[in-house]
Design a protein around this nucleic acid. Structure first.
Lengths: 352, 352
DNA sequence: TTGTAGGCGTTATCAG
DNA sequence: CTGATAACGCCTACAA
């Protein structure tokens, strides 16, 4: 029932608590013999030091926090994995924390800074709408990765890694235009979302404009529910059903995520239509699923691996004081899949 | 630079630390006026109490730990979400922790018990091979959910929620047999895996036997790499490629997860074959992707929602002392999708 | 209703 | 090399 503490170990070994502490923490000033003896009793009694006490007392740690907004997002899952490895390589401890949609990630971060004496923080996802003052209060190096921000000018108090959502979604929509599509619908998060959704919509609008296509508000399909920012297949399916049921004419769809695109395909199939013969579908992100789907989803691949690695690199550069905060934008890559084809007014039945 | 503490707040308000503590923790014995005053200064100075100190001092908390082995698994992602809500409904704090493949979840749990004074622990995924002694040492109610265990007899020191992997995979393979398939390949984790993979293989073997089909070792495709237990589309793709390239004859494939099944489909398509006309493909789990895939994957749906809810229920029953530890097995549901069809020796080109 | 003091389990400091 | 001892920041008797 009683928790065994460092004192108990000390008593058992006939040593002082500080010696036990030294043994545990690999301090240099300790006799090898007593050290092994202590380590043995620790193992024997399954003693595990109390982290709360440690964190409270320690002046610094090697902990890096990774705060993720949207842990279900497959795109993030991959980034997390890579960051995890990179951080481990720096011999640091990763503290992974899932942040809810309504939660304020900076508050969570602040709490962690106090609790764990963090070395640095990585924010993954979410929307960057915090004041410089709030961020400075965190007192540790910060990197925002794949976080959207309306004004693309980060302050000097944090680093920033991302693709340019406007530019990249422009690429995709422009690609659809060049294929000859003129009636291009877009599936997107709800209107209140000022995050990535809005940026990608901007790219869509600009691409249409540059291709001399008039913007048709009826082809912009927002998720209805407020606060509904989740990029799920189900939402893609729902949105596409609405769109198809509306009777509105269109030949291509740009879904602002691959998950939405896949859901959309399902709706299209269920309406007895084909992808891409009847409707071309394109996504965004370049997640594995887009590649494995049938047909392969035409998508805009974000260089996940490089982005994740660079995120960690930037963080450690600042931690080491070697560099000051930076702003890195990555280029996406348009992957042509089987879900899009050039627009054909005669509605051919036998492509290929 | 200096961290602001409870003492600072106390000083600023001209109050004692205990009063500040009472204000923060909603204690009854406190003057409303002083309470609001304190709360205001706390807000004004953005004071956040140090969790380490709290955990160290508190004798109990309302924290429940959820230790997940394989956070990338879409099946778990859904369960986590549901458990999260259920735990919140019990007005408890969820401590979500990702456990690496090589990490021992019980060690992590032990560490958390000490650090956070946990009320209970839920283990999601992984393989249950811990001694009763180890588990008892944790001192708090335990539930293993969707964890595999060779001997299906849990001790009395923990609860257990799962489907019967043998029975359920039997159902699926039996279904394929009843469709007329006699050469059924299986895609599975590496041979060293004594977890879910082995159980599902048992179901496969039994189903074949009951259908008077001789077991053909060459149709059992294990992941090659040791320690490779990840149920990814990529692995499914690789395995299926090997299988197809081997020239071995078969008409159906049972992949022990939907992700593997989807990867397998991709490989089949790339070999110029069709699903299900040339090869029937079935999966396991019933994740969303199986439903959205084209064709829809025939799968064995695990009742995620109920399982997740029951997991939390069992935990709280024990916490409240109302019930003793239990062992709940759920029935899966075979969802017929478009990826399977009855075996047709004439290799029809125009199904329905 | 409020304040003071002691201790939670460690680590850091400093004298031996 | 080792062992007391004083913090770390908070909560909680207990006394006022």
């Amino acid at each position: 029932m009683e928790m065994i503490t460092i004192k108990d170990i000390a008593k058992m070994c006939g040593a002082g608590v500080s010696t036990v502490s030294r043994a545990m923490n690999n301090h240099p000033d300790i006799n090898e013999e007593t050290k092994t003896k202590i380590l043995n009793t620790i193992k024997e009694y399954n003693y595990i030091p109390n982290n709360s006490a440690r964190n409270l007392k320690r002046t610094e740690s090697r902990a890096i926090a990774l705060l993720v907004k949207g842990i279900a997002n497959p795109f993030f899952v991959k980034m997390i994995k890579i960051m995890e490895e990179a951080i481990e390589k720096e011999r640091c401890l990763l503290v992974l924390r899932h942040v809810d949609e309504e939660e304020n990630e900076v508050d969570v971060a602040m709490s962690l800074v106090k609790e764990r004496k963090l070395r640095g923080i990585i924010f993954l996802g979410g929307y960057l709408n915090h004041t410089k003052e709030e961020l400075l209060r965190l007192q540790v190096p910060l990197v925002f990765s794949s976080t959207s921000s309306m004004d693309q000018k980060p302050g000097d108090c944090y680093s920033y890694v991302s693709v340019n959502d406007v530019t990249e979604s422009y690429k995709m929509v422009d690609y659809l235009c060049k294929l000859g599509h003129r009636k291009i619908a877009v599936l997107i998060t709800n209107e209140a979302d000022c995050g990535i959704g809005r940026l990608r919509l901007q790219g869509y609008e600009k691409a249409l404009k540059d291709n001399q296509i008039e913007l048709d508000q009826e082809l912009i399909y927002h998720m209805k529910e407020i606060g509904m920012t989740s990029y799920t297949m189900e939402n893609g399916y729902e949105l596409m059903n609405e769109l198809l049921d509306s009777g509105k004419e269109f030949s291509a769809v740009f879904a602002i995520s691959d998950t939405l695109a896949i859901g959309a395909c399902k709706a299209i199939f269920e309406h007895g239509l084909r992808v891409p013969e009847d409707i071309s579908v394109s996504g965004f992100d370049g997640i594995d699923m887009a590649h494995y789907y049938n047909p392969t989803i035409t998508t805009l691949r974000q260089p996940v691996e490089e982005m994740a690695k660079e995120t960690v690199n930037l963080l450690f550069s600042v931690i080491r004081g070697k560099e000051t905060h930076q702003y890195k934008t990555f280029e996406g890559e348009l992957l042509e899949g089987g879900s899009t084809q050039s627009y054909c007014c005669c509605d051919s039945d036998s492509p290929s």
